[in-house]
Design a protein around this nucleic acid. Structure first.
Lengths: 250, 250
DNA sequence: TTACTTTTGATCAATATTAATCAATTTTGA
DNA sequence: TCAAAATTGATTAATATTGATCAAAAGTAA
């Protein structure tokens, strides 16, 4: 049995019971306590259960309190980009936050600011709801449970009702030929709405996506004011020659 | 039993009572007073209870990290009303769910239905997001962190964009003279919007609120189609004579 | 205030749990 | 196919938890 299978079984087992010991789980999964401990550590890091001394406890609301986005928490590149992006946010700003994992990483660098955040991302909502200095405006519409974000026409209408100083967005691909591209149309319509209604558009994009193209072409390069990336000069010169302002993180 | 479990039990115990002594807790948790003291010290440090000489006191506004709508979970009356209310929901229904604690209790009785839920309540969102048969439409707008719900003009506009088969709402006061009354205007505008856009309006209201009036008068009795309550005939006859259909829970 | 009782915090020993390490095995990728 | 990487389980040293004990501190009543 592999980690994913065990993870599923552990979480299922915790649906029924309040808590389980390492040894109980070892017996249920027919694995050694050492493996269970490693698993529990990993799953707890994802925020889907609470690690206790000797076992694990069920998480009351795993969906909103713990997230797959945390998977990127130990990605130093995304973290650097996020920190650089957050440095452009000033007290008093009204900002749009998109629902990508790099944008999500900005949260921890925003907690000391006095700002208003407009977002369609539930992880961001959960992360910032406890910060008194941040006002949250939640974008309404159909909930996409897999992405833990709100999408659809209604959401676009909602965004159109606001103007923000800055929008922080992500993409799946970025190139001089095709501009901004995304995997899914649902997300690209939201991102397009953010672009349309923001004074400044900041694109957070790690080196791996530069020069790559994805499925939906949704915006020109000129729509972006600043690209924040970890890519080196070699990769960004072409973009800069197209008039894009590039900020290197790290 | 480990610290996490004891912590949960201690806080749950303090939901019901104003304060508890170290020895009472030691007996409840089957742990030594020394352990309880250590626990209380740690929990107090987190700001979730107030340490007293000899025990601990409930904290009025604990900084809840999750969205669990604890109040009312062990309230059998609210549970009965919620179960009765949920029995009116059929597969295929589109329903509005208000952000009160009794309405929240409906969630556990809705999990087996195939429905679409439109709500402004984050606890309801958190509770239902994992249910595959339930589509969620989140109402957008300004987030009220204290109430863990979305309010404001934008939210009302959002609701006006939809029509639901049924709306399940709560009130703070209900009387033949003043109709429906609420503590705050923010909530009453949302409730009014639900009433306006629903085919049937179901009001969930325990006996304690019947005959009482609150601050904001926001709807006539005639706006309600069905009152679901635990009140006995003596209290409801006047309402029934005003043409209200009453369902008794329990 | 003073004498008395209760509660607390510190320390300690017993026990349980964990993290780190390593060898064996399986999986992955060339 | 083979070599490299990842996963697993066993071992062991390090760490955490617990309850008991007791002196110090806090509360109580005269």
């Amino acid at each position: 049995m592999n980690f994913q299978e065990r993870k599923k079984k552990i979480l299922t087992a915790l649906d029924d019971v309040e808590s389980l010991t390492v040894f109980e789980l070892a017996e249920i999964l027919e694995a050694s306590p050492a493996t269970i401990r490693r698993d529990l550590g990993d799953i707890a890091e994802e925020g889907l259960l609470i690690r206790t001394h000797g076992g694990a406890m069920k998480m009351e609301n795993p969906v909103l309190t713990g997230f797959s986005e945390k998977s990127g928490v130990n990605n130093p590149v995304k973290e650097q980009i996020a920190e650089k992006a957050a440095s452009f946010v000033q007290d008093g700003d009204i900002i749009f936050l998109d629902c990508g994992s790099t944008v999500f990483q900005m949260c921890r660098f925003l907690k000391k600011k006095s700002i208003r955040v407009i977002t369609n991302s539930l992880p961001i909502l959960a992360e910032l709801i406890d910060v008194p200095s941040i006002q949250i405006n939640l974008i309404g519409g159909e909930l996409n449970k897999a992405r833990k974000a709100v999408h659809g026409d209604k959401a676009v209408q909602h965004i159109n009702g606001y103007h923000a100083h800055k929008a922080f967005i992500g993409v799946d691909g970025l190139s001089t030929e095709n501009g901004l591209t995304a995997h899914s149309e649902h997300e690209s319509t939201i991102t397009t709405a953010f672009i349309r209604n923001a004074g400044q558009v900041m694109l957070l994009c790690d080196a791996s996506k530069i020069g790559k193209d994805s499925y939906v072409k949704f915006a020109e390069l000129s729509a972006i004011h600043t690209l924040i990336t970890n890519a080196d000069a070699a990769k960004t010169t072409a973009l800069q020659q197209s008039g894009l302002h590039v900020e290197i993180a790290g």
